[in-house]
Simulated scan of single mutants.
Amino acid sequence: MLLRVHVAAVEPLARRTRRIVLAGEPLTGLAWTPGQNVTVFLADPTSLASWRHGPRDLKRSYSVWNYDPAGRLELAVYDHGGESPGASWSRTVQAGDGVIVTKPDGRLVARPGASLHLFAGDDTAAVPLGAILRSLPETARCFAVFECNEPADEIPLPGASTPTWVHRHGASAASSALLPAAVAGLDLPAEPGVAYVAGEARTVQAVRDHLVNDRGWPRRDVLTQPFWTPGKRGLD
């Protein structure tokens, strides 16, 4: 189902992340679990002219930062740079613009009953993983490591655990060795828990391989979600 809503506010959340607040009656009473995303249509999908560049340029998936059942849904959109359709939309969208979105969906959500929660991701992953982290009770046992370029790129992540941030200082975010090394340096309990790993595809794979091969975590307990990778249309 497509929901026609409007942009209520746009403001910076960090140096390269914008908080985009959507509002409208179609957003009332939706089912949302922290960690889920919505699809944002960058042009009207009911118009044939919108499809001339292909479906991958027509839409992007963005994680939900927060949701109010009264009819407000917040996105936190990271700007990768460049002139991709998603980046251009996030830079130019403003209050009053109309937007078409889908209902929240996705399986990157907290696993009930986990004895330990481990979060690891880059700038793009901090949004859904931060939403999950914020939703956990204060008694939850959590470890969280996030990677970004500089301290000014950190987004606020209140929740059950204070996350550790590591900084690239200009190094590439693709195939980053920084995040896997930070996870490897954690003093984790011997008993595995559930890991939520998201961000750049090859970095996600490296973190998963460390947890499974080096620490002996069951693969089924390492939940992964690649959000982007260089040069792949639709993942930018």
Results as ranks from 00 to 15, higher is better:
Leu3Asn: 13
Leu3Ala: 11
Arg4Met: 03
His6Tyr: 01
His6Ser: 14
Val7His: 00
Ala8Cys: 00
Ala9Cys: 01
Val10Arg: 07
Glu11Met: 08
Pro12Gly: 09
Pro12Gln: 13
Ala14Ser: 15
Arg15Gly: 01
Arg15Met: 07
Arg19Trp: 09
Ile20Leu: 12
Gly24Ser: 07
Pro26Leu: 07
Pro26Tyr: 05
Pro26Glu: 02
Pro26Cys: 05
Val40Asp: 03
Phe41Ile: 05
Ala43Asp: 15
Ser47Gln: 15
Ala49Ile: 08
Trp51Gly: 04
Arg52Pro: 03
Pro55Ile: 07
Asp57Trp: 03
Ser61Tyr: 05
Tyr67Trp: 04
Glu74His: 10
Val77Glu: 07
Tyr78His: 15
Gly82Pro: 01
Glu83Phe: 01
Gly86His: 12
Gly86Arg: 10
Trp89Asp: 03
Arg91Trp: 12
Arg91Cys: 09
Gln94Thr: 15
Ala95Gly: 10
Asp97Trp: 02
Gly98Ala: 14
Val99Phe: 03
Ile100Pro: 02
Pro104Ser: 13
Pro104Met: 13
Asp105Ile: 00
Arg107Asn: 04
Arg107Ser: 07
Leu108Cys: 07
Leu108Met: 14
Val109Cys: 13
Arg111Val: 15
His117Asn: 07
Leu118His: 00
Leu118Asp: 02
Gly121Thr: 01
Ala125Pro: 02
Ala125Thr: 00
Val127Tyr: 09
Ser135Val: 07
Pro137Trp: 15
Ala140Met: 10
Ala140Tyr: 14
Ala140Phe: 15
Arg141Pro: 06
Cys142Ala: 12
Cys142Asp: 05
Phe143Ile: 04
Phe143Val: 06
Phe146Trp: 01
Glu147Met: 07
Cys148Ser: 14
Cys148Thr: 15
Asn149Leu: 08
Glu150Cys: 09
Pro151His: 05
Ala152Asn: 04
Ala152Leu: 10
Ala152Ser: 13
Asp153Val: 12
Ile155Ser: 13
Pro156Val: 03
Pro158Phe: 06
Gly159Met: 13
Thr162Trp: 01
Pro163Ser: 14
Pro163Ala: 14
Val166Trp: 00
Arg168Ser: 13
His169Glu: 14
Ser172His: 00
Ala173Pro: 11
Ala173Met: 10
Ala174Tyr: 00
Ala174Leu: 01
Ser175Arg: 12
Val183Trp: 08
Val183Ala: 05
Ala184Leu: 04
Asp187Tyr: 03
Pro192Phe: 09
Gly193Gln: 04
Ala195Val: 05
Tyr196Cys: 03
Val197Cys: 11
Ala198Asp: 00
Gly199Phe: 02
Ala201Gly: 06
Ala201Pro: 08
Gln205Ala: 14
Val207Pro: 03
Val207Cys: 05
Asp209Phe: 01
His210Asn: 06
Leu211Arg: 02
Val212His: 14
Asn213Leu: 12
Asp214Ala: 14
Gly216Leu: 11
Pro218Ile: 14
Asp221Glu: 13
Asp221Thr: 15
Asp221Val: 11
Pro226Ile: 04
Phe227Cys: 04
Phe227Leu: 12
Gly231Ala: 07
Gly231Met: 06
Asp236Glu: 15
Asp236Pro: 04
